[in-house]
């Protein structure tokens, strides 16, 4: 009897609900897609740095927080929004320069794990320094982005979510063009393939690293604005990096489109699981379900959906 009930919860009830209320299901899917874009924004920062330097930047979440804290801090100091944005971008470029000068330069040709450990240290530094500088209170972030909800054919949509999705799409488009059609983009890819070979043909590794960390800082700023507008700018922004990990596992660590598609799949997948399969385990499954989903994909594509397949002789 219990087995039948269990099978019902797994296979029957969710499908009955989906087909009984298709409009609600559509709302769940759209909501998942929009949330997925937000995850992608965070994942993009990871991808950029990994793609260009092979470093898994554990500090990307802290960079999101740091950028948002600076933006709100400048606005609170009375700067107009455009100037606060500009100043924050400058701060993130300076940060990239300092990271290259004091961290990466000393770790060239070191094991990946050493670089990874260094970024863990950077995480704590940025969290602590950011909060010391600007405080730990929740700071509202209002850049005038519209935030009204409206209904279309029974579907409730929110202007802010749509704006965030649009911004994410534009950002991805720009980055894709940047990587594929500019000299710097090609240099970035060359560095990603082989540091020493890239240096041998005259690509300035240090400059490339500063550029890529600056771009990751800018992406972090965009993610910080979108997430910070939802929850206020506060420490927990740095924890959204955890939301990006399954996206990276799924999409591949080196693919910009992978970060986007991965984000969308994770966003939709976790929402559907939380809403339709919640009764099975009592709820609050979306956090870990995202990892289950990503790991399930890995069984079939270990390099992720769009990741590069690496074959090494052992």
């Amino acid at each position: 009897m219990e087995i039948i009930s269990f099978l019902n919860l797994v296979f029957v009830n969710p499908l009955v609900e989906i087909f009984s209320y298709p409009i609600f299901f559509a709302e769940v899917v759209i909501s998942g897609l929009l949330t997925g874009v937000m995850y992608s924004l965070v994942a993009l920062g990871f991808v950029l740095i990994f793609k260009a330097s092979g470093v898994f930047n554990f500090a990307q979440g802290a960079m999101v927080l740091f950028a948002a804290l600076n933006l709100v801090g400048f606005i609170e100091q009375g700067f107009p929004i455009w100037l606060a944005l500009l100043l924050t971008i400058i701060v993130m470029i300076i940060l990239a320069f300092l990271i290259e000068r004091f961290m990466l330069r000393h770790l060239i040709n070191q094991e990946d794990i050493i670089l990874f450990m260094a970024t863990i240290g950077l995480t704590f530094l940025l969290q602590g320094f950011g909060e010391t500088l600007w405080g730990s209170n929740v700071k509202p972030l209002d850049l005038g982005i519209p935030n009204q909800s409206f209904e279309v054919a029974g579907l409730l949509l929110n202007e802010f979510d749509l704006f965030a999705a649009g911004s994410g799409a534009i950002l991805v488009g720009v980055l894709a063009v940047f990587f594929h059609y500019t000299r710097i983009g090609r240099a970035l890819r060359a560095v990603a393939d082989d540091h020493q070979a890239a240096m041998a043909v005259g690509i300035p590794l240090k400059t490339i690293w500063i550029i890529v960390w600056s771009v990751a800082g800018f992406v972090g700023l965009v993610a910080g604005i979108m997430w910070g507008a939802k929850s206020g700018v506060q420490f927990s922004l740095s924890l959204i990096a955890l939301k990006a990990l399954p996206v990276l596992i799924l999409g591949g660590f080196t693919s910009v489109p992978g970060a986007i598609v991965g984000g969308l799949i994770i966003g939709v997948g976790e929402k559907i699981a939380e809403i339709y399969w919640r009764p099975l385990v009592g709820g609050a499954i979306e956090n870990w379900f995202a990892y289950v989903l990503a790991l399930a994909f890995l069984l079939f594509r270990p390099q992720g959906l769009f990741g590069e397949r690496i074959i090494e002789r052992v």
Partner: peptide, 21 residues
């Protein structure tokens, strides 16, 4: 209706969709 939200609660769309329904 019991609806759990996982720590830290930065993302709650699924919860509030259920409230809406």
């Amino acid at each position: 209706v019991l609806l759990a939200v996982d720590h830290p609660g930065q993302e709650q769309k699924a919860t509030w969709l259920q409230i809406r329904r």
